[in-house]
Amino acid sequence: MGFEVLLKGSNMARLLSGLGVALKISLISVLISIVLGVILGSIMTLKKPVITFISKFYLEFIRIMPQMVLLFLVFFGTTKALGISMSAETASVIVFSLWGTAEMSDLVRGALSGIPVIQYESSYSLGMTVGQTYIHVIIPQIIRRMLPLSINLVTRMIKTTSLVMMIGIVEVLKVGQQIIEANRKSSPNAAFGVYATVFILYFLVCWPISILSKYLEKKWES
């Protein structure tokens, strides 16, 4: 079946370190996306026409654009055009953060504007200050609304990191390809075994995250 190649030499370890590269890129991008997304999403609720226009344009642009094209644009395009040299990993973190920030900001905006004004008034009428209202009433509700959806974004990001091999990053899928190439003669079936293993690795990473998201959604449904 081709699984035996993984037992040869350090193949399995290489595959796992490839997975590590993928996870590192997505984790850094997620952290950046959360911070920037919360800021942008909060600004979007101010309902200033210019801000709304720019943020809508940004969001639509990022959504329509295939991530791979965006990767090529940032990695090959800007480095040549602007004369900046950046590593492929930096380029991917930029692209994934651009994408994640767009999605996160929309989630934050949705969660914030989904809380009716009268919820704030209900808290104020009990004598709570603006600060106390945000800390104890509004922000906990926003986190509950957002967390399951942002966790989904994390799994989507992890899956999409398989694209970064196109700009030369040796992540889990690329390592898999290398292993298959190197063992073409000795194990012609390696493709199945290796890709199946990559599939299982992705699954093992994303499945618990997806379960966590479902669990939180159920726990917090209101």
Partner: peptide
Amino acid sequence: IGMVFQNYELFPH
């Protein structure tokens, strides 16, 4: 001043 609203406005969380 206490106030009670039409739609209760309890804190859902």
